[in-house]
Design a binder for these strands. Structure first.
Lengths: 135, 135
DNA sequence: CCTGCACCTTCCCATGATGGTAAGGTCAAG
DNA sequence: CTTGACCTTACCATCATGGGAAGGTGCAGG
């Protein structure tokens, strides 16, 4: 099948399929006489794997490792679990950071009247002249 | 003061100060005869505002708006609050997405023995041959 | 046969926020 | 006069993705 069909089936855009090939995440596709890329069910399977990993927030390099682990029948499940756990830790850290931002901002908006008057603790905090130190 | 000193005082790198100037987030700094940029306490105040807004996750364009609101004595606190609330909503959405990833991945790692054997629900799920549908 | 249309190809550019580095100018202290 | 710390501009890189141009392929209909 052509790249567009593979894209439709996997949810990975044709643009990204070409990109993944360029960076060596997937092998160069077979070519027809027309020079069009030609994909089979094996390729679609691999692309599906990649998309699901992307959906879970794995980076390209992590996916590269996951693909190796997928193809390695000798590897232990502990290897996979370690990679996944590292990613969970990344996610937790990001979530924590965003949560701190959210909470700080929530406190400020709660303190802001939100009426027609100009006085606003949000702006005052950003300006550094809030009474509460850093925020 | 020179850009390095302004950077030290505000926690905004010299690189980023020049960048903010280039994209018009801050006005072009005064120059000495040496062509070195020269900053005063007003500039430092503005950069501090920007850094605090960045620390709360506001984008450059949102900060542009916040700076206008800061300088506008006529604006209502409702205007500021609305912008902040929109950003809180953004943060909540991101946190939700990351949380979903985290939870899905947690379920998979919990189901993975993590021992020397190769069988691994994480890889199987990514490969699309898990028994639970999408993940 | 020609035309149109849908699809493909490669190549270059853009995003957002930030960092790195190179080549060179300025300035004060030794 | 040299050294070192600082500054200047300019270009390139990141990460994952999309946009668009310029041109080739292939099929269906007039």
């Amino acid at each position: 099948m052509q790249i567009g069909e593979a894209a439709r089936r996997t949810g990975v855009s044709a643009k990204m399929i070409r990109h993944y090939e360029a960076i060596g995440l997937i092998p160069g596709a077979d070519r027809r006489e027309s020079n069009y890329r030609d994909y089979g069910h094996h390729d679609v399977h691999r692309l599906g794997f990649i998309r699901r990993a992307r959906d879970l927030g794995f980076s390209i390099e992590e996916i590269r490792d996951l693909l190796h682990l997928w193809g390695d029948t000798q590897r232990s499940s502990a290897d996979v679990k370690a990679l996944a756990q590292a990613h969970i830790d990344d996610l937790d850290q990001k979530i924590g950071l965003l949560g701190e931002m959210r909470d700080t901002l929530s406190r400020l908006t709660d303190a802001c009247d939100g009426d027609h008057r100009p006085d606003c603790p949000i702006i005052e905090s950003l300006a550094g002249d809030g009474p509460h130190g850093r925020f």
